[in-house]
């Protein structure tokens, strides 16, 4: 049959039933920026784990974890396509943009989910694979399908999904979970609310239009600003713990203290400046810096533990 007679199902309301999407559209379904942070944090868990793993096995496990994270992002986009279409930030995503059919995204997400879990189980161990499967389930089902549209604490509880990668990383190396990865879990878990609520304050109208009960829409901007500061005040000291527990060195101590103070200062600014363009800028500054903050913490942790650059400190806790 000639190519000219190949057929596709007709499109309705901008949603492709059989798409002609390109590879980059499928790559976009994996939320590459989130995947990058997952890779960095999982590497942090692997680097601080007591033990070692063959570099090729470590790399293979990391690829499986990254693909699993991408798969959960893909399933999230499939489930949330209706509300994504209503929000300016997400309206151009592959499904609401009409470039990928919902059924394609679902098949893609499920295939990658199953594949990544099986591969992680084969190259690493069953615990790491089970943990990755649970993370995908938690993000796609517990967060996306349940919490996101039903409670203002959606990203607080759902934040656990983003905090699991260091634990998976440690499980890859040791076949177990330890205190190190639990501390890294706590850092990411406490980081998630200030990070997301800074964005939610700016995009409150978008979330209202989509009917997503984010904290600013439910409890109001003032309460959200107070809670952002409260979480930052708890998170910053917790982020110093790796240095006090002996699995991070002097560089990490300095970076975690300085950037932690910056997070608190930016949260105070969000609390104090609540009107007009300045308030918008304060929220954007906190949102942008929070990404840099998490990246810096794990990058220094990684450099110290993997490259032999650690200036060891006396163990204070643990």
């Amino acid at each position: 049959m000639s190519a000219a007679f190949d057929t596709i199902e007709t499109r309705s309301e901008g949603v492709a039933l059989t798409s002609t999407a390109e590879a980059r559209d499928f790559f976009a379904l994996l939320k590459p920026r989130v995947m990058f942070l997952v890779v960095v944090t999982a590497l942090g868990g692997m680097a601080t784990a007591p033990g070692a793993v063959h570099p090729v096995i470590g790399l293979a496990a990391l690829i499986a974890i990254a693909v699993g994270a991408g798969a959960s992002g893909c399933l999230n986009m499939w489930w949330d396509a209706d509300i994504d279409a209503l929000m300016t930030r997400t309206a151009k995503r592959p499904i609401p943009g009409g470039r990928v059919a919902p059924s394609e995204a679902l098949a893609f997400g499920l295939t990658l989910s199953v594949g990544s879990v099986i591969v992680l189980g084969l190259v690493a161990n069953l615990l790491a694979a089970a943990m990755l499967a649970f993370t995908i389930f938690f993000y796609a089902v517990v967060y996306s399908m349940w919490l996101k549209r039903s409670t203002s604490q959606n990203i607080v509880i759902g934040g656990a999904a983003g905090a699991f990668p260091p634990m998976i990383g440690e499980a890859v190396v040791t076949g177990d979970f330890g205190l190190h990865s639990l501390v890294l879990f706590a850092i990411i878990f406490l980081w998630t609310p200030p990070h997301f609520w800074a964005l939610a304050l700016v995009k409150a109208r978008d979330y209202a239009r989509a009917g997503v009960p984010m904290l600013p829409n439910v409890a109001g901007p003032a309460a959200t600003r107070r809670q952002i500061l409260a979480y930052s005040l708890v998170m910053a000291p917790v982020a110093v713990l790796p240095a006090l527990m002996g699995f991070a060195g002097l560089a990490y101590l300095v970076v975690s203290v300085v950037t932690g103070l910056a997070m608190i200062a930016l949260s105070v600014r969000v609390l104090r400046v609540s009107e007009g363009e300045a308030a918008y800028k304060a929220c954007h500054a906190l949102f942008g810096f929070s990404i840099l903050y998490l990246f810096l913490l794990f990058a220094v942790l990684l450099a110290e533990n993997s490259l032999g650059l650690m200036w060891a400190l006396p163990k204070v806790i643990g």
Binding site: A4, D6, T7, I8, E9, T10, T20, E22, F26
Partner: peptide
Amino acid sequence: MSENGNRPVVAFSPEDMARRRRRSVALA
């Protein structure tokens, strides 16, 4: 547009075919 049984169908445009080819190469 033509009919294929009861299903309405449309032919791929050259741009659609080029996109599908690029996707197949990426898959390979």
